[in-house]
């Protein structure tokens, strides 16, 4: 299974995602330039975190017009895997590949801290190795992660995959770091091949960084792809 990490001007987690796939998982990976119009030799495309186009206008609002986003939509439509992390998630929302929108954090401040995520859906390509209700410790680092969505729109186009929770999995207001509706931290499209989340699994993929809970997302993707077989 081959990974691609998209580089937008202002992306800043692309090297971290590359490192995760290349050094931690030991899988083939290459960078994809924002002006590329095709995703050749890529089975799973990662839209990394950062501040694409400086977050000008609105996080993700300019990046969604990048030439590569047409290819990403096509890839998703053809059943290819797409993972949007933080700014990558925001871009997926702006591009309409996932429902909803982001507001400023309730604190009106950037927040960098560990959070706990309860896995709500183990049927997606990126969570199939999780147990239902499993709790993952993964850090967030964002200023605009306050997720909002029209419930009907969500029901029609998406599935909730992660919610901010306590360490024991209880979903409480106190566990919600940014004001997100219903503690939503990540979601998938109905097909489960496109997943976006605000927390950064690439930062919790090695013991030396404080934990390895984040690995399961990409390990799930690899398993999914192997079971599905080459298309």
């Amino acid at each position: 299974m081959r990974f691609g990490v998209v580089v937008f001007p202002g992306s800043n987690c692309e090297r971290d995602c590359f490192h995760l796939v290349d050094q931690v998982l030991g899988r083939p990976v290459r960078y994809v330039w924002h002006q590329d119009t095709a995703l050749e030799r890529v089975d799973c495309v990662i839209l990394p975190g950062g501040f694409s186009y400086g977050d000008y206008l609105r996080p993700g609002a300019i990046a969604r017009f990048s030439p590569v986003m047409g290819a990403v939509a096509e890839h998703a439509g053809a059943g290819g895997l797409v993972l949007g992390i933080c700014n990558g998630f925001q871009i997926l929302l702006e591009a309409g590949l996932l429902p909803g929108a982001m507001l400023r954090n309730r604190s009106l401040q950037f927040q960098c801290q560990d959070v706990f995520l309860r896995v709500e859906d183990v049927e997606t390509a990126f969570t199939r190795l999780c147990r239902p209700g499993q709790v993952l410790k993964v850090p967030i680092k964002h200023g605009d992660g306050n997720y909002h969505v029209d419930p009907e729109d969500l029901a029609a186009r998406g599935r909730v995959v992660f919610r901010y929770s306590e360490a024991d999995g209880r979903v409480t207001p106190e566990a919600n770091p940014n004001g997100s509706m219903a503690n939503i931290a990540g979601l998938a499209n109905l097909e489960g091949n496109v997943v976006g989340l605000m927390p950064h699994p690439e930062v919790s993929a090695e013991e030396v960084l404080g934990g390895t809970d984040g690995r399961v997302l990409l390990e799930s993707a690899v398993r999914y792809w192997e079971e599905r077989g080459p298309c």
């Binding site: 975190g49 960098c112 993929a205």
Partner: peptide, 16 residues
């Protein structure tokens, strides 16, 4: 203070 700073990007931070 430091919660407002991304202290993790670069995936090198072994002691936060």
């Amino acid at each position: 203070v430091y919660r407002q700073y991304d202290h993790l990007v670069g995936v090198n931070t072994a002691l936060r």
